[in-house]
Amino acid sequence: MNPFQFTRVTTPQAAISASTKESGTYFLAGGTNLIDLMKREVILPERLIDINKLPLTTIEKNVTGLRIGAMAKNSAVADHELVKTHFPLLSMALNAGASAQLRNMATVGGNLMQRTRCSYFYDHSMPCNKRGPVQAGPDKGKPNGPAGCGAIGGFNRMHAIFGASSKCIAVHPSDMCIALAALDATVNVSGPKGDRRIPFSEFHRLPGELPQKDNTLLPGELIMSVDLPTNRFADHSHYLKIRDRASYAFALVSVGVGLEMKRSDGSVHTIQDVRLAMGGVAHKPWRLFEAEQFLKGKEATEANFKQAATLAMKGAKSYGENDFKLTLAPNSIIDALKTATKTA
């Protein structure tokens, strides 16, 4: 860990202006990821802006649905009555992540900003393209370690099968974000040039040529809140997380599913509407748009689930140690759909 300046702010405006003044500045929220990265010398900040005193912890109904403050703790969101009742998928995904202690510290905004858990990213003696500074941003953090992608040809058990590039095959580690992607969330941000609303599918990005850049935030922008539109998925939601141990492990593959079901006659269940997203498979939460389109209006049968899973896997590519995900991912989609439609 390198010596750094530490500033505590109490208003979003102060946070934004402090962060744009100098390079190498990071917002510190729950600290459950940033502090690790500092200890491992992956990130060497010059300045931390502590935003824990910002009044952004409210969880409340608004005209379109639910608004969750960026500084709400993961555990507070997971346990909130409105979330549990109307957005159980989000509650399930949050509770599948990390440990109780971490969820008590981690915030919604911080969860969106999590960096990958790729081993090569964390070990600065190993090659990694993700550790480099983001050009044209305030983040001029020193690049630490050799360039290249260690995971390609290396230990890539945890890595992407969708949307990767020759520069990076890392995955986004969040569980919460899989639910937010499935639930069509919007991220509200505030920055030096004013406020913006970012659709969730546009918040995180694929690695392409610039894997060091995880998201589309502009310099100095601060996440203020996340909006969830009202839906009819509460009765048929499921978050399935497959991992190497029962708790406190990142997903090999996870599936977030929300369905609106219609009972057409005595026994057949028709899928009126559906949202599907996967974790552990891409550099960003991975929505399964084609599978969703296919399932709309279809009966909830294993045959249809299999076909949806096959569609979802189009374009998948594995890298050796993660070959099993080409089987595990579609199996998990089917398993999650069975559970959510209660046809298991």
């Binding site: 858990r117 081993s119 964390y122 070990d123 190993m126 290396g154 990142f250």
Partner: peptide, 14 residues
């Protein structure tokens, strides 16, 4: 990772 002879999961998370 035998290319480097180094551990890639030498922490309590991994």
């Amino acid at each position: 990772d035998h290319r480097f002879g180094r551990f890639v999961n030498n922490n309590f998370a991994d």
